[in-house]
């Protein structure tokens, strides 16, 4: 690895973080959908949904956090696309910098921005009555899973960021990701779903991640589900990094 990798990534990370600090609306637009959904589900639909546990906010929050990440990462595709369009990408490529620093700085920016969004959503959830029995270790595990999931989805977002031919194309890919939680255990228990849907719901990544987060928040043992959740995150991450790297190298030569 290039000896300048860390330094160059830090400089470019500083640049993107300034972008976020100067347009905090990107954080607001990221959190508005998940918060609206949380309000809708808890105060409008929640009464009719039987989840078996006590508080529906407690049941709902893990899925809402997943939706927050899914809507936040589309900004990575958007920012990357703008860099490519604007010519600054070519300036960076013609400079003696570590080649991968350009991508990593966008990915780390996404992690920071998503963590801020997640904290905002969490604070709203607390105001709505969310309570957790998680200890410090439990919180660390929650943070670890969320960061890992953010990394995996962000690298996925790098792919449309590098290949899209329009701004809309760059960010549109996130919509299906936002809806993945609906066909999972995020809002209603999977037992209530008809056969094939249930089979899909129980075997897609969101269910294992949501179930693990729910157990961690409740201070209960996570069981083997957490390994499935981690395997999904690492698997998506590995595949996305490989593809994004391939496209990037083809693009920059």
């Amino acid at each position: 690895m290039n000896k300048h990798f860390a330094g160059d990534t830090a400089v470019l990370l500083g640049r993107s973080l300034r972008h976020i600090a100067r347009s905090p609306d990107t954080i607001i637009t990221t959190v508005i959908t998940p918060i609206a959904m949380m309000l809708l589900f808890v105060y409008v639909l929640g009464g009719a949904i039987r989840t078996g546990t006590g508080s529906y906010v407690n049941y709902l929050l893990p899925g809402i956090l997943i939706i927050t990440i899914a809507s936040g990462i589309s900004y990575t595709a958007y920012r990357l696309f703008l860099d490519l369009q604007g010519g600054i990408f070519e300036r960076f490529q013609s400079m003696p910098i570590a080649r991968s620093a350009v991508l990593w700085s966008h990915v780390l920016t996404s992690v920071v921005a998503n963590l801020i969004s997640l904290v905002v959503v969490l604070l709203v959830a607390l105001a709505m009555g969310f309570r957790t029995g998680a200890d410090v270790l439990g919180w660390l595990a929650v943070a670890g899973i969320l960061v890992l999931f953010t990394l995996a989805l962000t690298w996925l977002a790098v792919i449309p960021g590098l290949t899209a031919s329009s701004v809309d194309g760059a960010s549109a890919f996130a919509y299906p990701l936002i809806f993945l939680p609906f066909v999972s255990s995020a809002f209603v228990p999977t037992e209530s779903m008809p056969g094939p849907v249930r089979a899909f719901a129980e075997n897609q990544p969101v269910t294992s991640i949501v179930d693990s987060l729910r157990a961690l928040f409740a201070g209960q043992p996570v069981g083997s589900g957490i390994w499935i959740a981690l395997a999904w995150c690492l698997g998506i991450l590995a595949v996305a990094v490989a593809f994004a790297g391939l496209i990037y190298r083809r693009r920059v030569g």
Binding site: D8, V11, R15, R18, G87, I88, R91, M95
Partner: peptide, 24 residues
């Protein structure tokens, strides 16, 4: 390049500091 490759959101000085750092 033919089309200005500057960062619109940063200030002029920040742009220059950024490239100077990237040139180590």
């Amino acid at each position: 390049g033919q089309f200005a490759a500057v960062d619109e959101i940063l200030t002029g000085r920040e742009n220059l500091v950024m490239v100077a750092r990237l040139r180590h």
